[in-house]
Design a protein around this nucleic acid. Structure first.
Lengths: 188, 188
DNA sequence: CTCAAGGTGTACTGATCGGTAAACTTTTGC
DNA sequence: GCAAAAGTTTACCGATCAGTACACCTTGAG
């Protein structure tokens, strides 16, 4: 299997895991949906967990790439980008395939706190926090770390709420809330 | 099995499902941990899903009972109760057994949008939204519905973040954020 | 005491779980 | 062109999955 075949396996596995969940997706289903035989899968990944970690690494990379690119398209100023984040989220929520945040879902299924899957999920959130904190700094927030935390809270809340309630509305609520926090962080 | 035995089964099943997850908890493990034989379990619940729904109904009831009671103990005024919500959450986050929100976790594992498990999860969030909205109304918020939404976003965000990052800190961040939103909703 | 009714534990079902052994086919290096 | 290496297929492993058949035991009524 050529190296790009491995990437394609991970890419296809990502789709299935995201759609159906981790425990609910057996290796046999993965074989059927990716077209890659089980033996080949186990040539590249020693266990299902290892495959899941690879899937999460890809997800981290591609989600952030998409998100940051979309935010850059939607706004020019740092403050504008913070608000535009929620427009980008809204677009995501409205996709038919939207199934919440894959890292939150992974954390829900793998609870042992030093599980590599959970570590990967925590890492993703940490990197997003740094992204928002950097935007907050560029926007001139009084305390960029605190504003970053707050924006992250709104983002996570919007993801969970929109997923469970089945509406993209929380993205708008979060955006208006972010506007208030931004004002507060810039005044004086 | 006497009726209170059934409740005890659901209570014990709740502990196991919350600790280990839904798909990762087989009926055999449930038999071992509850001391109730499989035959007896299936006398009361036709399927595992039906048992899970019963567990979620109990969780909804007991969580809200604990939460609202704790908030009432911590504050007297409606605005104070909104802020005290995050103190109550912080206490929850610090429990050793804390494993995030059971409804978010359930939604992560059961993605089919009309699955009764998912419906139960959505219902729980809806009821909490009404709780916060009512507090916002009593506090004299300009638009109680909007403030309620925002507080809910903060709560969900804090739950997810504290669960993945393994720290109760997001409860404090969310509380300070709620204070800003409250001020904004009361001014003028 | 007897007998019926309902709750219980044991042992099992076929299906699927994650993972592997070994034969077979394709690709690669020389 | 030919052999070694890499990838694939098929068939299988024991364990566990959700769910059930049935014998057993307890209980309450007469």
């Amino acid at each position: 299997m050529r190296p790009n075949k491995k990437d394609e396996l991970v890419r296809k596995a990502l789709t299935v895991f995201y759609r159906d969940g981790f425990h609910a997706t057996g290796m046999d289903k993965l074989v059927a949906e990716t077209g890659v035989s089980k033996t080949s899968i186990y040539k590249h990944f020693r266990t299902k967990e290892e495959l899941i970690v690879a899937v999460l690494k890809l997800r981290d990379e591609s989600f952030r790439e998409w998100f940051e690119k979309r935010v850059d398209e939607l706004a020019d100023t740092p403050a504008g980008k913070i608000l535009a984040s929620f427009d980008a989220l809204e677009e995501w929520f409205e996709e038919d395939s939207y199934r919440g945040c894959m890292f939150i879902n992974a954390g829900a299924e793998y609870n042992c706190k030093d599980d590599p899957i959970r570590v990967e999920a925590a890492h993703h959130k940490q990197v997003l926090l740094e992204y928002f904190t950097e935007l907050a700094r560029q926007a001139g927030a009084r305390d960029p770390g605190i504003l970053g935390c707050r924006i992250l809270l709104l983002k996570e809340g919007a993801i969970v709420t929109s997923s469970l309630l089945g509406t993209a509305q929380p993205a708008c609520d979060a955006k208006e809330t972010a506007r208030i926090l931004l004002d507060e962080a810039l005044k004086r």
